[in-house]
Amino acid sequence: MSERYDVAIIGAGPAGLTAGIYAARARLRTIVLDESVPGGQVKTTHKVSNYPGFPEDVHGSELSAAFARQAERFGARIRRSVEITAHDLSAFVKTLELDESETVEARAVIVATGAKPRPLGVPGEDTFKGRGISYCATCDGAYFEGKDIHVIGGGNSAVEEALFLTQFARSVTIVHQFEQFQAEPASVGEALTNPKIRVLFGHEPRAFHGETALEALEVEALRTRERKRLQTDGVFVFVGMVPRTDLLARYVELAPGGYVETTDAMETRIPGVYAAGDIRVKRFRQITTAVADGTIAALAAQKYLR
């Protein structure tokens, strides 16, 4: 069975859902496909303070749901928890196979598959994932009620999520490789004055240890090269993201770091295939920049389809 659309959007994060809003309002038959539930990275961000239109902070899950509702209101179809098991994006009519059972056809495809957490790549990380190591504070924070935990990283996500984790944990120690944070001054100030937060600057994680669950984090002081083991009940890792370009890798040459090069109209090298959001080569990756990309991609696709 095969269903025909004008535009198929892969990824229901801020970029894909915004593309969905614009495409559906342009009366294009629009489908948005996601292997998860809508929202992308935003759905698990506990609060967003810098997205315009929300003078008070907004929960990432609420913002995600609002994006999705808005796209659906104009007729975009959102398919959740579907896996793209085969695809051909180079033909004039592009085809996507879903869960080895259905086929979606569309003349334009917008790839907005975003990014996922970058693993640290140190010994023990795979073993203790879900046994003490987490990449999502909103998902797993409650497991660490009254516990002493560590957060790895020093950018916006690390500092913001560390603050969130103080709701549950008894103490949160942030381990960061540099001598100062790379986050917005507003949240840095909050973190440095929070009584539950301690900071270990100039240290990098080297290994995770434990029996069946995580028990200790081994760190190295970058200046002295001295290593030590820190007892821990849990470690949250926020050391950046990696683009999810496995789907596009077959069609285009990826830029260093795995990002996709586009024109300023979000066009890739394949006619009718656009890329938007965090997967693109660009300077700043935020919700506002992702929604801008999604807007442009949908408008460009609309022109292409005419």
Binding site: E35, S36, V37, G39, K43, T44, S61, S64, R80, S81, E83, D99, C136, T138, C139, A142
Partner: peptide, 17 residues
């Protein structure tokens, strides 16, 4: 599974299928 866990919501239909 937990409540208020988007990845759990995402898994549920796949798990059932």
């Amino acid at each position: 599974f937990s409540t208020e866990c988007p990845p759990c919501e995402a898994l549920a239909p796949k798990y059932e299928a």
